[in-house]
Design a protein around this nucleic acid. Structure first.
Lengths: 157, 157
DNA sequence: TTAGGTGCAAATCTTTTGCAGAAAG
DNA sequence: CTTTCTGCAAAAGATTTGCACCTAA
């Protein structure tokens, strides 16, 4: 974890930014909750536990900065709040989301399935892909199990 | 166009909703701008040309209603505003977006490239896809041309 | 030392809601 | 008639910004 913080610190400094205690605390929260998709408010509350004096505006400013540096990715599930995902170390951000329309859960697929499509885009549309976002909406395996064993015969929708 | 309005009118009525002049004007705007991804504000301004007395809240309420009826799809490109796409008559909504990080333009690909992936999801993850969203971020063909002929050698970012 | 950061509060922006009056079926 | 709608204005949330004061490098 220290190594990752150091690396990000260098990224910041190479662009003339400073690693302040507030930014470091924010980074640690993101690292400790890598599996989650935290909103700015979520991050704020978690950071407050470590650094109670931090302001919400600083969290927003930090997340925006980290977003510009491609350290985190800002995502939007349509629930009115932006969420922030720490990016993995690989060059691109290759993961997809499975969003269940029944229970609202979200799983991730940490593989990239779009390589061939991106080549095709470059060839056919002269569009050079830098990033992508792929979300699937449907029924997750948990809900499918539940629907089948649900004695009262409830069905989604 | 009248046929499509009639069809939606029936959809509304079968659920106990009324087709008011405001709703009809909103629908017409959506039909006339099917290629665009209008925000609620966009729709509001266009509807105002036909029905100046309409209120923004009514537009929001109408769009939400049409969304529930699956007449439009509410989408979110992460720019802080929800946008609304008229759904095509086909069962699924198969199109992808090419969003240019340089000029902000957005093109559409009206083909579905994900069929095989969706089958794989069902097989490997037991996840049944009902819809998907695929956005690519990168440099569009227009900006690539512009960058190459730009005498002052400006580069994006 | 000094450019960049911070906290706070106020401002902004999108979207939602309460309500009294209007109108579709 | 009665239930659903509408417009307006106010409210609610999320995010951004102005500003005077700090602080990391």
């Amino acid at each position: 974890m220290e190594a990752r913080i150091d690396k990000i610190k260098q990224q910041l400094q190479s662009q003339g930014y400073k690693l302040t205690p507030q930014r470091e605390a924010t980074l640690r929260v993101l690292l400790e909750n890598e599996e989650d998709h935290l909103s700015a408010e979520d991050v704020f509350m978690l950071v407050k536990e470590k650094a109670p004096e931090i302001g919400l505006a600083t969290v927003y400013r930090t997340l925006e900065l980290l977003s510009e540096l491609h350290v985190v990715e800002k995502i939007n599930f349509g629930d009115g709040v932006a969420r922030y995902d720490l990016r993995t170390d690989t060059a691109k951000h290759h993961h997809h989301h499975l969003i269940c329309v029944q229970c609202g859960s979200m799983d991730e697929i940490r593989e990239d399935w779009l390589g061939p499509l991106e080549e095709r885009l470059d060839r056919e549309f002269n569009f050079t892909v830098m990033d992508h976002r792929l979300d699937f909406h449907g029924i997750c395996h948990r809900c499918k199990d539940k629907n089948n064993t649900d004695g009262n015969g409830n069905r989604p929708e």
